[in-house]
Computed example of a mutant assay.
Amino acid sequence: MTTFRWITEPLPAGITVRQVYGFCFDSTGRVLLREDGGRYGLPGGRPEAGEDALATLSRECEEESQITIADPLYLGYQEVTEDGQPPYAQLRYAARITGFHPRHEDPDTGRTYGRLLTPLHKAPALLDWGIDGLLQAASAVHAARTLGLVPTSVRKDTWHN
């Protein structure tokens, strides 16, 4: 059985990082989801030898979704435990999208993924990650505010009844 636990603290020493993913925001505050056969995910993937987390995220964003990013902010990690094995980490970041580039195949899979820009509040349902996905999205909201991509408050005169 595999268990997942969202943790917003620094990564402890000794835990293996197997994946790095990003909530990548456009200039209007929408988050990019990678679409593959009707399923959605965040851009990201496995670190290559000698690569740190930020290099992994940047490379995977370019390879999978043909975007460039800046200003990555660490959100936390998902601790994954599989059938009595030592836990490993899937890191999560938020970042600003600085460029969209022509579509091409991912060199690892040979597939060209779809790109969906969606309001962040819709992402958890599309990702279908349950409570942990909601918690990660909540962390991403705070990061997007820090990046200046979503308002820090909503004026009353902008509410709709």
Rank of each mutant, 00 (worst) to 15 (best):
89 A>D: 00
58 S>T: 15
46 R>K: 12
125 A>D: 05
140 A>M: 02
42 L>A: 09
119 P>C: 08
32 L>A: 07
48 E>K: 08
124 P>L: 00
87 P>Q: 07
143 A>W: 13
129 W>A: 14
95 A>I: 10
58 S>P: 02
115 R>Q: 13
44 G>P: 00
51 E>R: 00
50 G>Q: 04
116 L>C: 12
75 L>P: 14
130 G>C: 05
110 G>M: 00
136 Q>L: 07
100 F>S: 14
52 D>L: 02
136 Q>G: 10
41 G>S: 15
103 R>V: 03
99 G>M: 01
58 S>I: 01
105 E>R: 14
45 G>W: 02
28 T>M: 06
112 T>K: 01
110 G>I: 02
35 E>T: 03
72 P>S: 03
70 A>V: 08
78 Q>N: 07
117 L>K: 02
137 A>Q: 00
18 R>S: 12
133 G>N: 04
133 G>Q: 07
19 Q>H: 13
81 T>S: 14
89 A>M: 02
93 Y>W: 15
116 L>P: 09
26 D>E: 14
107 P>V: 11
139 S>P: 11
121 H>W: 05
106 D>Q: 01
86 P>E: 04
119 P>V: 08
100 F>V: 15
137 A>N: 01
65 S>N: 05
129 W>H: 14
97 I>H: 11
73 L>P: 02
97 I>Y: 13
112 T>N: 05
128 D>V: 08
142 H>F: 03
50 G>I: 01
96 R>W: 00
76 G>S: 06
80 V>S: 08
36 D>E: 13
85 Q>V: 05
78 Q>K: 07
29 G>A: 04
95 A>V: 13
126 L>H: 00
80 V>E: 15
53 A>D: 11
140 A>G: 08
144 A>Q: 08
60 E>P: 12
80 V>W: 03
65 S>A: 14
131 I>S: 14
43 P>M: 08
67 I>K: 01
73 L>C: 09
126 L>R: 03
100 F>P: 06
42 L>R: 12
113 Y>A: 02
38 G>L: 03
72 P>I: 00
136 Q>Y: 01
123 A>E: 09
29 G>K: 03
17 V>F: 09
135 L>Y: 07
30 R>A: 14
79 E>G: 06
47 P>K: 06
60 E>G: 10
114 G>L: 04
42 L>V: 06
64 E>P: 04
126 L>T: 00
